[in-house]
Design a binder for these strands. Structure first.
Lengths: 226, 226
DNA sequence: CGAACGCTTCGGCCGCGACCGAAGTGTTCG
DNA sequence: CGAACACTTCGGTCGCGGCCGAAGCGTTCG
């Protein structure tokens, strides 16, 4: 039996800050080092050290995206392992990643920083592209004339989508594995959705609730039924 | 999510001496404090402290018997948890290769708490499923009519495999990385194998020796040559 | 371009916990 | 009974590892 490795993995989980980090990632999300540090309650430097250890030992995987680094559980085995430790810890029935009502909500619609992700985010991106309201380019994209009219109807101002910041980047979406709308346009759209109360944040989660008004609007304007 | 408890359990497993102790108990035996101290490579006093912690946290249970104290894993949950940690430990690319005769024996056949694991355990599970003696379901499984006859021939009693405890759970195997037979059926089978002296425990290890009679039986009844 | 930002590396501090020697409790012997 | 044994408790040492400040690197943005 490989007791040294057993102890090694155990001690990785056995630190309070690292346990906080792993807990945060149990629903399958990918979070940045800063977010994880905040959740763990330690400084950025300390967080960096922890994340390096967890990654080196194969518990976490990391994806670079611009100046961010998204950390996530490396394999389902890691999630399962933590579940089983929780069982011994006397915690509630095992929460397998991405099941249950709350996880379902996270899959449907959630924030990714300042823009929209999940099925909602991907769906909106799909629609805008399909209707040629938006064309993609290597370093961003461009709003077409028809797109500008559409956005104007939504109340998204033209200057909000100008400038060098790209409209749509391939923002890591761990549930849909497809690009969604980030950048200036994504931010402006998300802001508008909140402003009009089409979406509401859920406490303590990145999941979003689509309000009845939002549901109607999504069907009418985007042809989306989530 | 209960991160403090997660860290607590993790740190218990995360000490080398305690990991050694837990490893020793993985086959479900109950060992004395002295034996465990020797296996862990620390003094009696230190061992005593470790055992007290492990017991207080519910990982171990203890039985007094004269001047001895027999420690064992408190629940199958603990064994399962350790198995799952081992799976993650094995996911690391830079895995310490197992070598030597004894390690080979461990890979071939060993106990996993109260049932059989290793190539033997996985092989038996494969055969029973391939012959449709057993069908798997989400929450356990069912023995078919043909399976019942087969088990009867082995001397495994029908009531041993009835009841609410599942027949076959996906108990992940850290060498084979495939499910093997746990649950009531796995336990009953293992017990029968020991009773008939088809398998014998090796001292100080979870490895099992397949006796000549056992080898013959495995070939005749299961078509297995390990 | 420079400033702001996200993250990592380095260096040094410090506390927790593993460890053992010595002593104490309880049990089994002869 | 006392000696041997199994185990625990106490007390003190010490090293590993978590922590943060400061500095450095790469990216983004105006």
């Amino acid at each position: 039996m490989n007791a040294p490795r057993l102890a090694e993995i155990g001690s990785l989980v056995g630190d309070q800050a690292r346990a906080n980090i792993l807990s945060q990632l149990m629903d399958g999300r990918a979070l940045t080092a800063t977010e994880l540090g905040f959740a763990a309650g330690v400084s950025a430097q300390t967080t960096s050290g922890h994340l390096a250890k967890l990654t080196a030992s194969g518990l976490l995987a990391v994806t670079k995206q611009g100046r961010h680094r998204y950390y996530r559980l490396a394999t389902p085995h890691v999630a399962r392992m933590i579940e089983h430790i929780m069982v011994v810890a006397g915690d509630k029935p095992a929460r397998i990643p991405m099941h249950g009502a709350r996880q379902e909500a996270v899959r449907t619609a959630r924030t990714c920083y300042d823009h929209l992700a999940g099925r909602l985010g991907v769906g909106i991106a799909d629609v805008l592209l399909a209707r040629k309201y938006l064309v993609l380019a290597a370093d961003g994209g461009e709003v077409t004339r028809a797109g500008a009219r559409f956005l104007d109807k939504l109340g998204v101002e033209p200057e909000a989508v100008s400038g060098r910041r790209p409209f749509c980047r391939t923002c890591l979406d761990w549930t849909e594995r497809r690009p969604h709308l980030a950048g200036k346009l994504g931010t402006a759209l998300a802001a508008r959705f909140f402003e009009r109360r089409w979406l509401e944040r859920q406490a303590g989660s990145r999941a979003l609730t689509v309000t009845p008004a939002g549901r109607r609007m999504l069907r009418e304007l985007f042809g989306l039924t989530l």
